[in-house]
Design a protein around this nucleic acid. Structure first.
Lengths: 337, 337
DNA sequence: CTGAAAGCGCTTACAG
DNA sequence: CTGAAAGCGCTTACAG
């Protein structure tokens, strides 16, 4: 590949001057030399070696998109992405990074040391972490020395930049809606709520809605699984087996909700007459099934935009305040209720 | 960060010797020095600066996952990933690259020059291209000087490494199955088949199955759209409006098929009695809708494995032959037929 | 406005 | 087995 030195020779200037032109430090170069160099640069299709540049500058323009995968027993750990939510978010994040001249490195993170090494190895400028649970924040993501934005993550301590949606309100509204529709025996399905996280907050919203409507929560109303349709199917079977106990289910994600619906249908449970269902996320596929899934919609494209906006503000040093963004959600009423 | 020089000072050796230990060139270092250095390395949690290393070696260990996005009029260009197929594939590719010590850079590619610069900028070791059409191969992906593996791509000329599934056979089997089930007026829905690509080959399989069963294809049996559920919905409306003309539809992707089904249902077309449907891909969500979607299943995890296997063989110089892998598919018969 | 020198952290040949 | 030197391609002070 053509280097700055060769360009310099052709232009009969020092590589310093070429560097100044490349970096648009025009006050340091005369109009005439500048134009001569720019012409040569264009003719030879010069493009900088970023390894050399980054070695000096200690900036890489790489943002790491990290997806924690520390739950050893998660059966879906190698197909996280089958949930379209992930894909849509990463799509939006990549687009917005690209617009700002950054590069996206994608990585599933299984262990603390690896992440730290990765960041040092590549001089990563910033990190986006998707859906970490509290335990991970205190191990895997601790002591990271570059800006880091957590998406769909609730840290026990404050002091982290986070981008979330109105998980509590969304869940509260969803369950209130079920109650307004005449339902009183309302189950909930989610991934584990033992540790702080999105599932936990949505669970809290569910519990509050019950409480404020003087419905007593029963321990066996809560069904724990993994965030996938398959897991939803298993839960759906359990709910169908106890169908007299329930007249509604609030499921913490659309993908899981669709699995629940499948099992209910298979077991001749009528939706919404016997059991009504509300999901969470607002994925397009909720509209493709029958009956269409009522859900709490979040704007994934806007979320990706916000993630990049906040992260780059830190990376570029324009802000050192903690930012905790909460994006709005919207209850979509469809035929599953 | 701690560098090789500092380690060398502590160990009272030259940085050369430290480098030899790091790179496991043990024949060049005495047992004793080696152990002393390794201890210091571990104590200080040393990890190499890859920019420095790569600057010398001209190898980056970065594989670029490139998704062409040159269709200006594609309404879904910013939500490509809403199709879970993409996510699952990238999940598998990342996993297999990681196992071999490589890093994944993700990028949507809108223009030729950008790709070339990217590869030079980052000394990209290899490229995975997902779903390019022929025009793109001759522009965007031409003159790339690093190993490149095309997934779901059919080049007009030979000479490219490709990983595909049995698109022709899968389509042929799907349509034959419809015919065996007593259907004769069989529409097809797909993205454009004007240029060579997956859609085109599946279309060819469809046409051959009709022909071999002495069914005359009519020009207005083919519905062109974009590869998304939304587009499938639009096509579904058109098919419903002409429902007397058809008793089946073969759709080139599950996501599109699900959209078609939605519109048919909305228009009181009974599936499969009035119109039967077969999709392609074997996505999990085809099983979640009612009736369950008959489909041609491909193994996405295996596909990702194969992609990495072939690419790394080139990258590491163990093979210079062209490899054109075709993975098997399997017809899954469900209630939509 | 222009350039010579030093250095980022590493590896590659070469000498001892 | 060990080390001094040169260099990868760029940028950062500094001198003129």
């Amino acid at each position: 590949m053509i280097s700055i030195v060769e360009i310099a020779k052709m232009a009969r200037v020092s590589k310093m001057t070429v560097s100044n032109v490349i970096n648009k430090k025009y006050d340091k170069v005369s109009q005439e030399t500048r134009e001569r160099i720019e012409k040569i640069l264009a003719e030879h299709n010069y493009t900088p070696n970023l390894f050399a540049r980054n070695l000096k500058s200690n900036k890489s323009k790489i943002v790491l998109f990290a997806i924690p995968q520390t739950l050893e027993n998660d059966p879906n750990k190698n197909s996280t992405f089958s949930n379209p939510f992930y894909g849509e978010l990463i799509n939006s994040v990549e687009y917005n990074l690209r617009k700002s001249g950054y590069f996206l490195m994608l990585r599933f993170i299984t262990d603390e040391e690896v992440l730290n090494k990765l960041i040092v190895n590549w001089n990563i400028d910033g990190v986006v972490v998707l859906g970490a649970i509290n335990r991970e924040i205190n191990t895997v993501f601790k002591n990271i020395e570059v800006p880091i934005v957590f998406v769909d993550t609730y840290a026990a301590e404050s002091g982290f930049d986070t981008i979330n949606v109105e998980d509590y309100k969304g869940a509260y509204d969803a369950v209130s809606y079920l109650i307004e529709s005449g339902k009183r025996k309302i189950a909930m399905a989610a991934s584990s709520v033992l540790e702080m996280g999105v599932a936990r907050i949505r669970y809290d919203g569910y519990r509050s809605a019950l409480e404020n409507n003087r419905i007593e929560f029963q321990e066996n109303w809560f069904f724990e699984g993994f965030p996938s349709s398959e897991s939803g199917e298993e839960i759906g079977f359990k709910i169908a087996a106890r169908k007299k106990d329930f007249d509604a289910v609030f499921v913490f994600s659309d993908m899981m909700a669709i699995g629940v619906m499948k099992s209910l249908r298979k077991n001749k449970v009528k939706i919404p007459e016997d059991i009504a269902i509300v999901g969470f996320d607002g994925l397009y596929i909720g509209d493709l099934i029958e009956p269409r899934l009522s859900t709490v919609k979040q704007n994934i494209v806007a979320k990706g935009e916000k993630v990049v906006e906040v992260l780059l503000r830190k990376v570029q040093g324009h802000s050192s305040e903690i930012e905790q963004v909460v994006l709005p959600v919207e209850l979509l009423k469809k035929e599953s209720v």
